[in-house]
Computed example of a mutant assay.
Amino acid sequence: MVRPFFHSYRTDPQWSARLQTADPDADSPLVQIFDVEQERVLTTRQNSSAFRHQVELWIEAAEQLSGRSRLETDSGLVVRIPLQPPLSINRPWLQADISEAYLFLDPKSKALPFLLLISREGKPYVLDIKEQPQDFLKEQGLLRYLKK
């Protein structure tokens, strides 16, 4: 059995370091697509306003923070989206400056995709995403990485 990549934000504080395999000399942080089963980054993309805007749309569509208590997954993809400068969120249920977003997608699971937001201070927030993000992934040329 493949060891879950994301055991828990609280028990494995170095979890995000596993995603940090892009060129450290790049001027802007890259968007990364991580395969959980293979435990490796499949591809990187230049970060753009389209990624930032999509994160904003997902946050605006959410009505509250998720009740998820576990972030474990055995399969699927994680899309890391750095947000520089941090994205200021001022919702009734969330006031924070978000510096990174991680989109969790698992086509083998019936669970909705979810978004892990990390504040500038390192505090995690989780949102369930009601819509399937395949259209956005297709626009960005990333849909082919999502295996069923």
Rank of each mutant, 00 (worst) to 15 (best):
E131N: 01
F5D: 13
G122W: 05
I129E: 12
S75H: 14
L42S: 04
V126F: 11
L77W: 13
R120H: 10
P13K: 09
E39L: 07
K147T: 15
T43M: 07
R18F: 11
A62P: 04
W15D: 06
V55Q: 05
Q134D: 07
E100C: 03
E72T: 05
S109H: 10
V79K: 01
Q38I: 04
E72Y: 14
P24Q: 03
Q38L: 14
L87H: 07
D25S: 00
R70Q: 13
A101P: 06
A61C: 03
E72P: 00
A50G: 03
Q20A: 01
T44A: 01
A26V: 15
A62N: 04
L19E: 03
A22S: 10
Y145G: 00
D12R: 03
Q84N: 03
D23P: 10
R68L: 14
Q132H: 08
P124L: 12
M1S: 13
F34H: 11
T44Y: 06
Q132A: 12
E139K: 00
Q64W: 07
F104N: 11
T11R: 11
I89K: 00
D97K: 00
Y145W: 15
Q132G: 08
G122S: 05
A111S: 14
D106S: 14
A62E: 02
T44S: 01
E63R: 14
F6Q: 13
W58Y: 08
L42Q: 06
S119C: 02
D135H: 00
E100H: 05
G76F: 13
R80Q: 10
S16K: 05
I81G: 00
E63P: 03
F6N: 15
I89L: 04
D12L: 07
L143T: 14
E37Y: 10
L42N: 11
Q134A: 06
T44R: 02
G67Y: 09
S16F: 11
M1C: 02
Y125A: 02
L127S: 08
P29K: 00
